[in-house]
Each structure stands twice: as C-alpha cells, then as structure tokens.
C-alpha cells in the first residue's frame, strides 16, 4: 500500500464518496447520479467495461473503494463525450472517469500493465520534455512498451503507414534527435506547475477537518 493510499484510507474511513469528492476531478458530481443508466448504454465501448459509469457511481456511494480504484473500467473511456451529452443530470462523466483513473494511479491502485495508463504515462513523459508531443518518439516508445521483440513486430506491421507519413511529410525523421520544443519552455514549466498547485489547492479545500 502506498503512503498516500494509507493516508486516504485513514482519512475517509467509511466514506469513499467523500474521498472521491475531495480528490477526484469533478468527483463532487457523483452524488447527483440518479441511476438511469443512459451513460452505460451510450458508451461506444460499453461492452468492454466491467463496471459502467453509473454502476461505478453506485459502487462509490456504497464504499467499494478497492473495487472501484483497482478497476480497469474508467481506463476504457475514449473521451467521446456521448455520456456527458446524454446524461439527464448534467454529470461530467468523461471527466469523472479520467479523474478516477488519475486518482487510482496516484494511489498506486490502478491495475498493473493497464495499457491506457501506460500510454498516458508515456504521453505525459513525452510531453514534458519539450512541451510538445514528439509523435515519432511517442509512437516508437509505445511499440517497444512491451519489450524488444514485440516492438520490432509492431514496427514492421506499421511500416507502410510510417513510410507513407514520411513521404507526405507528416512525420519528420529528424525529430528522433530531440525534436523541436515550444518557444517558451520555462513558461510551459511554470504553467504546469501552476496547474499542479491549483489541483493541490482544490484537493486541500475538500479535506475534512
């Protein structure tokens, strides 16, 4: 158990809902769900969810902390926003799903080797270097995510697409060498820092006395 996880378990004891409200982005909306199930039915990836959003919300209210945070369900969200558009109660479901995933990751409870999580981490790491996403590096890092053999296999499979992109100048092989960055890199860092501060402040605000 990570320290943060231990701390949270202690702090919120039997109110997982309060924990979610305090720590998960848009978590304060979870209580507003009326269990109609339209989000669960509207999700194009619905069949791949162990627990659809509306059920996750009920599980949160029922205090099923481990089951929710260790679930891979919210990692299934592709941000199509169908659920938000349809929700009769205005719940920002997409954001809550991402918030839950993020929180699970922070606590170290997210399922190991969850592909979406891995991708997200790689995306983030990639982004942090120059302030821009280096698509070539991101792509390759993804192909080789599960080892060298797997990486070569995937690269060969994607060969034609890669070549096509090179020919049409959609991809620059020179990007391999560090790649170009945003104009104001320190400004970018400052921005990220500020965002992190804001997030921390938001979480602090919810902390129960």
């Amino acid at each position: 158990m990570t320290d943060l996880n231990k701390q949270m378990v202690e702090q919120y004891r039997n109110s997982f809902l309060k924990e979610v409200e305090a720590n998960v982005e848009e978590g304060e909306w979870v209580k507003m769900c009326m269990q109609c199930g339209v989000c669960s039915g509207s999700c194009p990836l619905g069949p791949y969810w162990d627990h659809p959003p509306q059920e996750l919300f009920m599980m949160i209210r029922a205090g099923k902390r481990e089951e929710v945070l260790a679930s891979s369900s919210m990692w299934m969200c592709t941000s199509c926003y169908n659920c938000i558009a349809r929700c009769p109660r205005e719940l920002p479901i997409t954001h809550i799903m991402h918030g839950l995933a993020h929180y699970a990751k922070r606590l170290g409870l997210a399922p190991k080797n969850q592909p979406t999580m891995k991708f997200s981490q790689k995306f983030w790491d990639n982004l942090m270097v120059t302030g821009r996403v280096n698509e070539l590096k991101l792509g390759l890092s993804l192909y080789f995510m599960n080892g060298l053999v797997e990486g070569i296999k995937t690269s060969l499979k994607m060969k034609n697409i890669g070549l096509g992109m090179l020919l049409t100048k959609r991809m620059n092989p020179m990007e391999m060498l560090g790649g170009h960055s945003v104009k104001d890199k320190s400004g970018f860092k400052a921005m990220i820092k500020k965002a992190q501060e804001l997030e921390a402040a938001r979480i602090a605000k919810f902390k129960t006395p």
């Binding site: 209580k31 507003m32 269990q35 209210r61």
Partner: peptide, 14 residues
C-alpha cells in the same frame, strides 16, 4: 427537491 437533496450529499440507494 430530489436534486437539491442529492446536491446536499444525501445518498440515494435503490
């Protein structure tokens, strides 16, 4: 009124 109750944090369990 139902929404107001939810907004105040009342939990509704079917």
């Amino acid at each position: 009124f139902y929404r107001s109750g939810q907004n105040k944090g009342v939990i509704f369990t079917k």
